[in-house]
Amino acid sequence: MVSASQGISRLAINDGDRQLRRTCIRFGEEIREIRLRTGVSQAALARATGVSRSVICRMEQGDPDVSARIRARSAAALGAEFRIAIYPGRAPLIHDAAHARIVEAVLHRCHPSWHPTLEAPVPGPGRRSTDVRLERGDEIVLMEVETHVRALEAIIREGAAKRAAVAATIPTGHRVHVVLVLPPTRHHRALVAAHPSIVAAAFPAGGATLAHALASSNVGWPGDGILWQAGS
């Protein structure tokens, strides 16, 4: 089974490489458009930037291996401004160490018949994801791992929205469950105890039954619930 750290590393590498390719393709299209609009040939741009024409050609074709230095020189030669920017998107793949340990512990408890996906994308607008998505047969379990919860209501609403988004894209007859994974701290025990009606309505399945279904090969998932899990 792939560990949480290995899965996160794979996701970061793959998604980062995709972002780089998209950015380089867009840059190549834009630099070519500016070059043509200003009437500058590839050969002239190559001479101005101190590289061969083939490098300019590769850059315009979206080759990510062309350095940022060459891109900046090309932009300057064409009277444009080169910038590198980063924009906030979905939740980070890297969480704190406590979060990673809890994910590792949950995966360790899973029976091999469950198929886990880490940071599984949630369909729909934005770039939402679920910490752990488990699949087996017609059962899908969306697990949200929280190391410190302040308000249950926001987490319940977010879980319901993710369930609806996933349910809209799967075959009829499949069931989607939401599980909140919490470390059994005094704070979390007190928070759950202080809201019995909310917890009973949103998370009716008991922690023991969730743990049993997680570790078993043929037990149906009992429904939404809170799974108490300390870091390994």
Rank of each mutant, 00 (worst) to 15 (best):
W221L: 05
W114E: 07
G124C: 03
A215E: 14
I156P: 02
A120L: 10
I86R: 15
A97C: 04
W228P: 04
R37G: 10
S67D: 05
G225Q: 04
V122D: 06
E144D: 07
P64S: 02
V145L: 03
G173Q: 02
G7Y: 00
A97Y: 03
V106Q: 05
A80C: 02
E30A: 12
V51E: 06
N218V: 06
G62K: 01
R53L: 04
A213K: 00
S41A: 05
V106S: 12
E146D: 09
H95M: 07
G7Q: 00
I25C: 10
I226M: 02
V219H: 15
P88C: 05
I170L: 09
E104N: 11
S52N: 09
L142Q: 00
H108T: 14
R101H: 12
E60H: 04
L78Q: 08
R21C: 09
A165M: 05
A76F: 08
D65T: 13
V145W: 01
R10L: 12
P125M: 15
G126Y: 03
C110L: 00
V141M: 00
A80K: 04
A68L: 06
R71F: 13
L45H: 02
A77I: 05
V178E: 08
R133T: 00
R69P: 13
A68K: 12
P204W: 08
V149C: 01
G124W: 01
V103F: 00
V106Y: 02
H195L: 04
A4N: 04
V192D: 08
A151H: 09
V141H: 00
I34N: 11
R163L: 13
L210C: 08
I102Y: 05
L36G: 14
A202W: 01
L20I: 10
H174P: 13
